[in-house]
């Protein structure tokens, strides 16, 4: 087990290393001056020259690469073109904002999805179940950004129940003040994107839970429980549901990783100042150091999600051998 853990961890580090390398070469492959992605063209020529030396941009590509890797290890992502502040400073708070938006919403989606999915399996064949499956598939097929816009149209503009976007009312708190996370205003802003994301994300666990439970119905242990005279409800919720929860739980971290990757969309619709929105803004302003750092952090979250998924899978499923 310890060996397996260590090896999976090593693979994770390797994956992140590969991704950092990919980013390095992707940004250097740009047509034109390769240093244009590292040093702001708006700086004075003298300042540009100073930075060129600082980042070793006058040296061969391979040396630049080593400097880039060393900088990553000490979390030095360079200087933002836009604000001329260190990228790291800009990114810290954003990471927390993304996690606060995505994590609780995904947990809620899985809890609700599993519950509703189990009920759907219990009521299989009924009109209610068929329309539930239909609705869940349709919701899952809708673009998330569009659902968000509809929600804003309905709940914020027509009904005036929630603010239109942002994390708190602008001007209410000094920038990056931790106290804002404890305010009612924050929760008020969080509510709508949370609801939309939860509703959208619960379709997958719902449908998976339902189909896993239905596929266990013919299995021996279910038949046995039935023969023992247990009621349909006891059989389904006591036996089938418990066994369906396992494969469901193991998908959570991976789907969580994908949700983080997809957070770009929901953050844009709700102007939520997370990593995704930061990346989109940075790209549209050609602020490459920020874009690159935001991407790498999202990648770390995604890879970490898959890592946890693999571990959970191993912990929960006794059939997995750590060979």
């Amino acid at each position: 087990m310890a060996g397996y853990l260590l090896r999976r961890f090593w693979h994770m580090v390797l994956t992140l290393f590969a991704m950092a390398t990919l980013m390095f070469f992707l940004f250097r492959l740009l047509p034109g001056d390769p240093t244009a992605t590292v040093i702001s063209p708006s700086l004075y020529p003298k300042a540009q020259e100073a930075m060129r030396q600082q980042f070793g941009l006058d040296r061969p590509l391979f040396e630049q690469y080593l400097i880039y890797l060393r900088n990553l290890c000490v979390l030095d992502f360079g200087i933002s073109f836009q604000t001329n502040r260190p990228v790291f400073e800009m990114i810290q708070g954003r990471l927390l904002n993304t996690i606060l938006l995505i994590l609780p919403s995904m947990l809620a989606a899985y809890l609700l999805g599993a519950g509703i999915g189990a009920i759907a399996a219990w009521k299989r064949g009924s009109a209610a179940e068929v329309s539930l499956v239909f609705t869940a598939t349709a919701l899952q097929s809708a673009p998330l950004f569009w659902l968000g816009m509809l929600a804003i149209l309905l709940f914020s503009i027509k009904l005036d129940l929630f603010p239109i976007g942002h994390i708190v009312t602008p001007g209410m708190f000094p920038e990056q003040d931790w106290r804002m996370y404890l305010s009612a205003d924050f929760l008020h802003h969080l509510a709508l994107p949370f609801l939309v994301n939860t509703l959208y994300q619960l379709c997958f666990p719902l449908l998976l839970m339902r189909s896993t439970m239905l596929s266990t119905i013919g299995e021996d242990y279910i038949e046995l429980a039935r023969m023992k005279g247990l009621s349909e409800r006891r059989v389904l919720f006591g036996h089938a549901a418990r066994n369906a929860l396992l494969p469901l739980a193991t998908t959570l971290p991976m789907i969580l990783g994908w949700a983080v990757a997809g957070s770009v969309v929901i953050e844009t619709v709700f102007s939520w100042p997370g990593l995704g929105l930061l990346m989109i803004d940075a790209i549209s302003r050609a602020d490459y150091p920020v874009a690159q750092a935001a991407f790498l952090l999202i990648a770390v979250l995604t890879v970490f999600g898959t890592f946890i998924a693999d571990l959970l899978y191993g912990l929960l499923d006794p059939r997995i051998v750590y060979a």
Binding site: G257, G262, M279, I283, A294, F295, A299, T302
Partner: peptide
């Protein structure tokens, strides 16, 4: 395959498109 599995899909596509 595992490495590609860790690649955040939407951000990656956007970066490639913008570059």
């Amino acid at each position: 395959t595992d490495m590609f599995l860790g690649l955040p899909f939407l951000p990656f596509i956007i970066i490639v498109l913008s570059l």
